[in-house]
Design a protein around this nucleic acid. Structure first.
Lengths: 211, 211
DNA sequence: TACATTATGACACACGCTGCCATGTTGACA
DNA sequence: TGTCAACATGGCAGCGTGTGTCATAATGTA
């Protein structure tokens, strides 16, 4: 299963070959991330200091920075997992289709992992993204990463399709825009409709974008 | 002319009613910005400290922060002008069209200001955007601002068009994506083709995005 | 048990950024 | 022209983020 690669280490599952050290490290990672998320929800990212997070998580400030480069990163753990899922099928782009259609199909295939809105990955993704919605600091980090991801996508697509640079950039930018619109809409709708389905919303988003 | 509103104070032009104080202030603003841009081009944003910029510009560090909130902002002066131009026609959205077409038309109308690639606004925009291209720190700031701008756009479009939230978000995201792709392509092509025209590239980007 | 590897904490330090106060400069009005 | 308010600037102290370094303790292995 690729699941293990995508969700770095679902520490709840008994993963055999991992030594005590690695499990401890992973556990600390989760604890710090969880603590940060909670504090950010209670106060705000800006109003929360790394010192507070570290203290609440029972580690020193120096140790915090050994696990996360910035306080924002500590909150984004599960969102990075989502981005990894989205990117997980890029090596199977169907070059018989148009770049845009191939990308959208790849994304749609990957998104089935988020079909069950009551699953743990979905609930975690929702929690983080509700925070992201109100936190400019987190949005900035996402945006920065999205720039990097876009350029990776452009490279990947370039090698597999023979189109102009403008066409490729458009395919990538638009595909990503549609996915992002779907994600945000899903987050919005989930606040009133527990059963809102990300794959379904993405599917209708694709339909609307065609029109 | 709206030019004066968009390019805050083109200090080279003799603007009558401005007092000595405001002109001095504007001049200092330009000098710091220019200094920052030059240093960033020579070294990098990360490797350049605010102290260096301030010293090179002949002001104290404290004064630097009275003109710009961050060192990144000091470099982005002319890019914000561009964003202002792009947004300058949003109050005239044609509600007879689809949201997306209305947005694209509004953008295209505004872009005529960048028709002449040898004009000062164009050359400055190019210079900044070449830096933006290699500087993650600057891209992060842009991305953050783009989030804010997108939500403004969504609001503006919502009041003028009667569509679902998903449709509006899509229109906005896709329109912005097409514009951004055009801008980046223009920057790329300008390095080999001095005459590359932003409005023209934007026009073909719109055409390609339809297909 | 002895040893190499790794995790942690404490400290010092650079940098970004802000609040505060003291000083000098500008512009308006008597 | 002189006075005074508004404003611009610099210096300094302080907070928060993030990193390098060293000493110490815990872990895995021979």
């Amino acid at each position: 299963m690729t699941r293990l690669e995508v969700f770095p280490v679902p520490s709840d599952l008994p993963v055999g070959p991992l030594g005590l050290r690695e499990r401890r490290r992973e556990q600390t990672n989760v604890e710090i991330s969880e603590t940060a998320l909670t504090l950010f929800e209670r106060k705000s990212v800006e109003a929360t200091t790394v010192g507070e997070i570290a203290q609440a998580a029972g580690v020193s400030q120096r140790t915090f920075f050994r696990y996360f480069a910035t306080k924002e990163e500590a909150a984004l753990r599960d969102h990075w997992a989502f981005e990894a899922v989205v990117a997980s099928r890029l090596d199977q782009l169907d070059s018989a289709l148009s770049p845009r259609l191939a990308l959208e199909t790849s994304f749609a295939d990957a998104l089935v992992m988020y079909a069950d809105s009551s699953s743990t990955p979905c609930r975690r993704l929702l929690r983080v993204n509700r925070l992201i919605k109100k936190e400019p600091a987190l949005r900035a980090v996402l945006a920065r990463e999205s720039v990097r991801r876009t350029s990776v996508l452009v490279d990947v697509v370039s090698t597999r399709f023979d189109c102009s640079d403008l066409q490729i950039r458009l395919a990538v930018d638009v595909s990503v825009a549609v996915l992002r619109a779907a994600l945000e809409t899903w987050v919005d709708r989930s606040s009133t409709d527990e059963t809102a389905s990300l794959p379904e919303i993405y599917s209708s988003a694709r339909g609307l974008a065609r029109a």
